[in-house]
């Protein structure tokens, strides 16, 4: 069965390593924080200016001067630090942040990503997404494999305006885990009960299938 959003987040959390500084985008990526494996210390960066972001506050303890990049009220964990936006993107461009997880509308088989604009329909702006994808070596996309119309979001080429070129390293969807390689999407794992055939049918870009593809362990 295909994963739900929490399942995708849970699988991505397995990519975390001890000592990682991680930037989580809005949507599914935010859920990753709920599934950090036991015994691993990671710290979350939010690009509006905090390292050491904690969970949402208890009711009555919300602080308008303490929000994340999604403008949600948050808390600061012991050891947290605040900083201005130039320093924040210094951390990002300077590759001090080890991993970035973000959502996408389309990912191409060469690692191009589109997630900020639908011409004539939605123009909200890219926020920090272009800086994030251009800067880190470890960009993981969390998204559903197909859009609401059932069309593949994993394409030979993006059709929407790009956020970055050749930047995505890994894609985790409700159906599969794939690495982005010079030859296309390399299938690494299947969602529990999902067949390779189903994944092939839902992937418009080039999909590389070598040997037996194991199921994800959640």
């Amino acid at each position: 069965m295909a994963l739900d959003k929490n399942g995708i987040a849970q699988r991505i959390a397995q990519e975390m390593q001890d000592g990682y500084y991680v930037n989580l985008g809005i949507g599914i990526p935010t859920l990753v924080a709920n599934y950090i494996p036991q015994g691993i210390s990671v710290e979350f960066q939010s690009e509006n200016g905090i390292l050491g972001m904690g969970p949402f506050p208890f009711e009555g303890e919300e602080d308008p001067d303490l929000i994340n990049a999604g403008k949600q009220t948050i808390t600061a964990l012991p050891g947290a630090a605040f900083f201005d936006s130039a320093m924040s993107f210094g951390m990002i461009r300077g590759q001090h942040v080890h991993m970035t997880v973000l959502g996408a509308m389309e990912v191409a088989e060469n690692g191009d990503i589109a997630n900020w604009k639908i011409p004539g329909k939605m123009v909200k702006g890219m926020g920090g997404a272009m800086d994030l994808v251009a800067s880190a070596d470890n960009i993981i996309v969390a998204m559903m494999h197909t859009n609401r119309a059932g069309e593949s979001k994993l394409l030979p080429e993006c059709t929407l305006p790009l956020t970055g070129v050749g930047v995505v390293r890994k894609v985790v969807t409700d159906l599969a885990v794939m690495d982005v390689t010079p030859d296309g999407f390399k299938l690494l794992e299947r969602a529990p009960g999902v067949s390779v055939e189903e994944i092939k049918n839902a992937t418009a870009g080039r999909l590389i299938v070598e040997g037996d593809i194991p199921e994800m362990k959640l």
Binding site: F56, F58, E61, E62, P64, D65, I67, Q72, T73
Partner: peptide, 12 residues
């Protein structure tokens, strides 16, 4: 006024 755009809380 210091308005909050996305008030998000967790349960105690």
């Amino acid at each position: 006024e210091k308005r909050i755009e996305q008030r998000t809380v967790r349960q105690r």
